[in-house]
């Protein structure tokens, strides 16, 4: 068991790939915003991808281990101490009963950190997943982010089996404050919805991450598009409107003039055009982009994106 001495800014239980299979009724997958770091953390403690861990945003919790455990921290590096000493990142850590892991503010680039525990965090499944969806008040720990005094159960017996030290040093992703993110054009592009100049502008701009960005969506500040149409036809008045359709996770919507990247707790249906969609193997970068970071988009073909995804999967397998 783990006692929450201090909850941090926004700490939730998540599993990967989350609550999949319900997008058609508007239940988002949730799960980690940076699935890459999350999966690496799980591999470091010999967990399967699906085991639940903690997602920590910007500033970390203080946790007291009430039993022995194997843990690993990945993602954005936080200030912190474990039993008064420095906290190693991206490697397996064996903690004894009574240990206090005290995490502070994020140091340097990146925005989200992950704590995996050997055996996984034990909360009830809701619709097949342990991921928290706070807006719906379900999943994770009582459907909400952690608060001081919570006691989290872990699958301790399984943890006993995994005391093998590992390091992810060879595959640690690079974190920055100016992110270049691979996208595939579409579903809506030029010349039907956007002007050629809009497309040019989209790919040549360094978009600034708006402070009001979260697990539902990432808002981007930058120039306004002109749009190819005068209005949205039957979809609505604004030229960014189309009849409601289902969004891909990672799609870059124009809600009016502002681009918003749909992320893991986002809405499934909506009526705004999307100029490009972040590729699967690059979605983690959005999860690590913090407010006021810059994001620019690099266009890829589906074949290139699948090739990158395949390489990423092979790297992850090399840790197993």
């Amino acid at each position: 068991m783990i006692e929450v001495i201090n909850a941090g800014l926004f700490t939730t239980v998540q599993d990967s790939p989350g609550r999949v299979g319900y997008w058609n009724v508007g239940i988002p997958p949730s799960g980690p915003m940076d699935a890459l770091a999350f999966r690496i953390a799980n591999k470091l403690v010999s967990n399967g991808d699906h085991e639940a861990g903690l997602e920590i945003t910007a500033s970390g919790p203080a946790l007291k281990f009430l039993s022995d455990a194997t843990v690993a921290l990945a993602g954005a590096k936080l200030q912190g101490t474990i039993n008064g000493k420095g906290v190693p990142w991206w490697e397996t850590l064996y903690v004894e009963k009574g240990t206090v892991l005290s995490l502070g503010a994020v140091q340097g680039p990146g925005w989200r950190s992950y704590l995996a525990v050997g055996g996984g965090i034990d909360v009830p499944d809701y619709l097949g997943s342990k991921s928290t969806f706070p807006q719906g008040h379900f999943g994770g720990y009582e459907g909400r982010s952690l608060v001081k005094g919570d006691v989290i159960h872990i699958n301790e017996r399984i943890a006993e089996l995994h005391r093998q030290w590992k390091s992810a040093a060879a595959i640690i992703p690079r974190y920055e404050t100016e992110w270049e993110v691979g996208v595939i054009p579409g579903p809506h592009a030029a010349p039907d919805f956007f002007t050629p100049a809009d497309v040019e502008m989209f790919y040549s701009t360094q978009w600034r991450v708006h402070y009001n960005s979260n697990r539902l969506g990432y808002r981007l500040e930058g120039p306004k598009p002109h749009f190819a149409r005068k209005h949205g036809g039957e979809g609505g008045r604004h030229p960014s409107n189309v009849p409601d359709y289902a969004y891909a996770i990672g799609t870059v919507n124009f809600t009016g003039d502002m681009p918003i990247i749909v992320t893991v707790d986002g809405p499934s249906l909506g009526g705004f055009v999307s100029l490009a969609t972040v590729t699967t193997s690059e979605l983690w970068k959005i999860g690590q982009a913090k407010p006021h970071d810059f994001i620019s988009f690099r266009r890829l073909t589906v074949e290139e994106a699948i090739e990158q995804l395949s390489r990423q999967e092979q790297l992850l397998q090399s840790l197993a």
């Binding site: 956007f194 497309v199 040019e200 360094q206 266009r299």
Partner: peptide, 18 residues
């Protein structure tokens, strides 16, 4: 606001965009 065109970039012809 975003910094327009402040980085090297693939130059894209709109016809290809379609």
């Amino acid at each position: 606001m975003g910094k327009l065109g402040s980085r090297r970039r693939l130059h894209v012809r709109a016809k290809e965009g379609c």
